[in-house]
Design a protein around this nucleic acid. Structure first.
Lengths: 287, 287
DNA sequence: CGAATAGTGTCTATGAGACATTATTCT
DNA sequence: AGAATAATGTCTCATAGACACTATTCG
């Protein structure tokens, strides 16, 4: 008979570390119905829909990236914001766990997901038991954000995993609360609140890795809809890089890549000369 | 009272995955006293010292990279070769575990160590319990290889971790045998034997990442001694890339980097014009 | 001297950044 | 017409690859 009752402190010393997953999910802006929080106080201000209103320029000209965070509701780091995530069930691949846990928080699945790094320092949480976190980073594209929230049957992780190692779940229990509530909100990456554990470091590294990427085409692909103008594509790159790009050179380089296809159609409803609409050339999906 | 006796198959279903570390440790050639195995049979042929003899050109002109592997002595994959590694004790950082386990197999510590990727597919071992492996890659430099084997007190992992989750150790028990024996041998990366688990995939990815590195200077740094000629440095780069480099262009580019310092001294004992000796400019260590 | 490798100089193709200029649409 | 942005063209500079040529040491 196996007894998985909570081990005492002295017994913990002989336990192997537990594993979990956390995800940094970038978007050009939050979903319409999502909460936006004040970076300073962490207080939820309003939904993105109210905040941005019908001012589409605010969306179109988004010049920075957003990520969703989850507020912890118990120690350690009670009240601090943290990355969405959770423990790894025995029958889920790492990607699956990342995808499912981010969906449980945001009610939407990112179009792209890639492993970032594993954080396992013995010091990453002073009081809690040893936990190795495999961090992922992902991208919410325009289609993902426009789509209404989906409700997948969320597995009862508490009984699957927690019963075997209940201590681990204390770091993630907040991800299990009903979503779209005040404990899930979006922040811009250049104005983040105080974060739990070493999650600030994880986010910093995720941003760095996103910017390191040479093939932005594939990445930007995920942020955009089916058809788009070169200006829209350029703004995605600018949001990722955090700096401006020369439109002329950008056009030349992107077209030289041979990844774009001119649809022959034109943008509509502009107060100026309309731009050509492009789409990406078909190519094998990955991620 | 916590009972960590081996769980049955049905009980395993509710256990969280265990975590371990494996390391791909590159070197320009094996240590002098290390075993060299025949790629086909996996049989240990001789030590590197016997094999290479006093033919220093064989060492100097090494045109490929070597890695140490450990032969499994029990199922699953009994008799197959695998990466050195082991489970993570509660009080060790991931780097420390990688460094310690590779030392237990090779009796030498690599001069450079960097996290590679975490492999956690549910399918990576059919019969054994779920295990997430955090892979590292490292470099043995010339000084590391010349140095005599060091014997650090190896912690009794079996009692630290294995007692808590004995099943996990079946994948790594071979790392605990007395080292420098016939179950540890070196292979060239282009002629590897059949490997256990998904370790072939891990090695392939490690080689890819090594070659992706733009700043080879830092990497090559680790492979060389204090002073070196440009030809020696070039051969390191050629071994990493797996292809030849134009000596003239290589010289120009390396000197333009401003990382090299002319020591003013010359190579000795050559049957031709001796080359200048360089060293790397002092810079903050990392890794 | 000849062999062998070290070391230098030069030509060319490519790609990125800067920026001037023309084109097209709306108000 | 004037505003605003799309789209094109051109110049320069930095870098990488190819390769001819000179220099120095040993035997």
């Amino acid at each position: 008979m196996v007894n998985f009752s909570a081990p005492s402190a002295s017994e913990r010393r002989f336990m192997p570390p537990a594993v979990a997953v956390s995800t940094v999910a970038f978007a050009l802006h939050p979903p319409i119905d999502a909460n936006v929080a004040d970076p300073r106080s962490g207080e939820v201000i309003s939904t993105w829909g109210e905040y941005a209103g019908r001012d589409s320029t605010r969306v179109e000209h988004s010049t920075t990236l957003w990520i969703p965070l989850v507020r912890r509701t118990r120690p350690p780091f009670d009240g601090h914001w943290a990355l969405p995530g959770g423990p790894i069930p025995w029958d889920e691949d790492l990607h699956q766990t990342a995808s499912r846990t981010i969906h449980e928080a945001v009610l939407r699945s990112p179009g792209y997901l890639e492993q970032l790094f594993s954080f396992g320092a013995t010091t990453r949480s002073a009081s809690a038991p040893r936990l190795v976190t495999i961090a992922y980073w992902g991208l919410y594209g325009q289609p993902d954000l426009i789509a209404p929230p989906t409700t997948e049957p969320s597995r009862d992780v508490a009984s699957d995993v927690a019963s075997a190692n209940r201590d681990v779940v204390t770091e993630f229990s907040e991800a299990l609360v009903a979503s779209a509530d005040a404990n899930v909100a979006w922040f811009t990456i250049d104005r983040l609140p105080e974060l739990a554990f070493d999650h600030a470091e994880i986010i910093e590294y995720a941003v760095w890795r996103l910017r390191q990427r040479t093939e932005y085409s594939m990445i930007a692909h995920r942020f955009l809809g089916e058809e788009f103008t070169l200006a829209q594509l350029r703004r995605v790159h600018e949001a990722i890089l955090g700096e401006q790009i020369d439109p002329a050179n950008f056009r030349r380089d992107m077209l030289a890549q041979g990844q774009l296809v001119d649809t022959g159609r034109l943008e509509e409803g502009t107060p100026h000369r309309p731009a050509r609409l492009y789409r990406f050339k078909e190519q094998p999906d990955q991620g």
